Amino acid sequence: MGRLWQIFQTVLGIIFRHPITGTTIIPILPNGQIVLVRRFDTGQWGLPGGIIDWGEDVSTAAHRELKEETGLTLIKIRRLVGVYSAPDRDPRIHSISILIEADVEGRFEVQDTLEVTEIKAFSLDELPLGNLSHDHEQQLTDYLQGTTVLA
């Protein structure tokens, strides 16, 4: 019985004491605009993305999350922009976000109405910098500067 309890505690520790991994997407429309979503929980603009489900790889999760939050189709991943792992980057949980830049197309359609209230495309000079959700301000700044970041 003692060994079983040890295994149970180990499994709980793995589940609840390790960061959650997700992906965030910088969606680029054919006209060069960047797509952001307005979050339901904070009312702030942010990049689409979310948690990688069990059995998914990063690319599959990015395709799924983009479709759920924007209705858009991910055509091509351009590059890895960075990996963001600061414990306070997400106010809800300790999460690690893998940020990618991607070519996207399609029509805007919020499919996940529990997370997203609005979708909008912004030109580079119209981006609502200054009050983005989570650490998306830093992520977009790093992207715009052309850097690849491990933070």
Rank of each mutant, 00 (worst) to 15 (best):
H134K: 05
Q139H: 14
I51P: 06
G55L: 09
K120R: 15
Q44T: 13
V11H: 01
H18E: 12
Y143V: 00
V11I: 11
I7W: 14
I7N: 06
V149Q: 09
L4T: 08
I96A: 02
E101D: 07
F122M: 04
V149E: 14
L36Q: 11
T148Y: 06
L72H: 04
Q111M: 05
E68F: 07
T113F: 03
V58E: 15
V110Q: 12
R39V: 11
L80E: 13
S133N: 12
H136M: 04
D112V: 00
G22S: 00
Q111L: 10
H136P: 04
I98C: 01
L129K: 02
L74T: 12
I93V: 11
L36R: 10
H136Y: 08
I96G: 00
D41A: 05
R92P: 05
V81K: 03
V83F: 05
L140A: 08
V81S: 05
P27E: 13
D57H: 09
I52A: 02
G50I: 00
V37F: 05
I26Y: 02
E115D: 10
E137K: 09
L66M: 11
L140C: 08
F16L: 08
L144M: 11
I7D: 03
T10W: 10
D125N: 15
I52M: 03
F122S: 01
I119G: 07
V104L: 04
W45Q: 07
L99R: 01
Y143F: 15
H94F: 12
R107L: 09
H134T: 07
E109C: 07
G49W: 07
L66S: 02
E118Y: 14
G13L: 08
V35Y: 03
E118R: 14
G32P: 12
P19T: 09
V149M: 11
S59A: 14
L140T: 00
R39G: 15
Y143R: 04
L66E: 00
G106A: 01
R78P: 03
G13C: 06
E115Q: 13
T42E: 06
I77A: 06
R38V: 09
P30H: 13
E56Y: 04
V37K: 04
L124H: 05
E137Q: 12
G2V: 12
D125V: 05
K120N: 07
P30I: 12
L127I: 01
V81L: 10
T60P: 02
N31D: 14
Q111A: 00
V35L: 06
T117G: 05
E126D: 06
A102T: 02
F8S: 03
R78G: 04
D125K: 12
N131Y: 10
D41T: 09
D125R: 09
Q6W: 08
F8N: 02
Q138G: 13
G22Y: 03
P87M: 15
Q33Y: 07
P30R: 07
I20L: 13
H94W: 14
I14D: 10
P91A: 11
T24L: 09
I26P: 01
K76T: 06
F108M: 06
S59M: 02
E69T: 11
E137S: 02
E109Q: 08
V58G: 06
G22L: 03
